[in-house]
């Protein structure tokens, strides 16, 4: 079963200068028990996507079409808000970049972990034990004593692990992790992603992991979705994307990663040009103005080309790997 199926989703915001199409024909699946990484630069629509899934779009945002099907039954684009509230937390949980923003600074960790179990029918002691169990799972030393402490008494890495423990406490079907390791240094980042992988297997949930750190994505995720200017330009398994990218944007993005330059260089590769104005989207390919493989055919909307085994790229030459100039 697919935990989350997003099909042809379109989201726009009304602005003074006219409608801004933040997401255009976005389709991908988050299969059961998989970790799906979402990659894309800031402004590519990652946050809009999360908010659309959670039913938290700003007042000027609207879903103009498409569907977000959760666990094969709940259509999130038209769900009554009361039902959405039942899903948020117990079934769909989130972890954000800044753990301090997720934890209340003036309430002890234990009390916060009790509070979020308000729907549970367990007794207070049982809830306490559950909280201890979760803190032990995320390797907080001396978990029972930790319940009495306040967020500022933990290090940044520990706070993020507490936030993860809280998100997974109700054993959700889907965890949305929005850049959860960006604020951590390399050693903590690695421990956090290893922990996340471990917990995902223990709990058996699906994870949507948003990051612009390609190394973290490569290490953690099963599948990868590449977004550019509000469109999914390519999606596939982590090996398909990192070893055989078919969309020129994916290929260029991977080349830009300083981690791929084994030789020390003072001049790092970049993608020249800027993202087009989303209020005036080009009719054709969204990447055409920055693509060095552009041709006349790119002025028509490109099809989602199926390369096989779930590998899809929105580019007319995606099925001719020699033409995408990929040097993976």
């Amino acid at each position: 079963m697919t935990t989350l199926r997003i099909d042809n989703l379109n989201v726009s915001f009304s602005t003074e200068a006219g409608p801004l199409h933040a997401l255009k024909n976005v389709s991908f699946d988050v299969p059961e028990n998989r970790i799906v990484g979402i990659v894309g630069e800031s402004g590519c629509g990652k946050s809009t996507l999360i908010n659309a899934i959670l039913g938290l779009l700003a007042d000027n945002g609207s879903i103009d079409g498409g569907s977000i099907l959760f666990e094969g039954q709940d259509e999130l684009t038209s769900l009554p808000s009361s039902r959405m509230r039942d899903l948020r937390g117990p079934r769909i949980a989130t972890v954000f970049q800044d753990p301090m923003g997720a934890l209340n600074p003036v309430i002890s960790v234990g009390k916060q972990m009790l509070n979020i179990q308000y729907r549970s029918t367990l007794s207070k002691d049982e809830k306490m034990n559950r909280a201890v169990e979760m803190l032990e799972l995320v390797r907080i030393p001396d978990a029972r004593a930790a319940l009495a402490r306040y967020p500022h008494q933990f290090s940044g890495g520990m706070k993020q692990r507490i936030a993860i423990a809280m998100a997974l406490m109700m054993e959700p079907a889907l965890l949305i992790a929005d850049e959860p390791t960006t604020a951590l240094d390399a050693t903590l980042e690695v421990t956090t992603i290893e922990l996340l992988k471990d917990l995902q297997q223990k709990i058996g949930c699906s994870v949507m992991f948003i990051s612009h750190h390609l190394g973290v994505i490569a290490e953690l995720c099963d599948d990868v979705v590449v977004m550019y200017a509000g469109e999914v330009v390519e999606r596939g398994t982590v090996r398909q994307i990192f070893q055989d990218p078919r969309h020129p944007y994916t290929a260029r993005l991977l080349e830009c990663d300083p981690a791929r330059q084994s030789e020390r260089t003072r001049h790092l590769p970049t993608i020249p040009g800027e993202i087009p104005d989303l209020r005036a989207r080009p009719a054709g390919c969204i990447f055409a103005n920055r693509c060095d493989l552009v041709s006349d055919a790119c002025s028509a909307p490109p099809p989602d080309k199926d390369i096989g085994d779930g590998h899809v790229a929105r580019c007319i030459i995606a099925d001719c790997p020699e033409e995408t100039g990929v040097t993976a």
């Binding site: 190394g215 973290v216 090996r239 990192f242």
Partner: peptide, 21 residues
């Protein structure tokens, strides 16, 4: 050794640090 590399097949020979900062 902890630095994540953008290669899904890379085998990591990491030095894990016990304990917290």
């Amino acid at each position: 050794s902890a630095n994540p590399e953008p290669d899904p097949d890379k085998t990591h020979d990491r030095i894990t640090l016990p304990a917290e900062v």
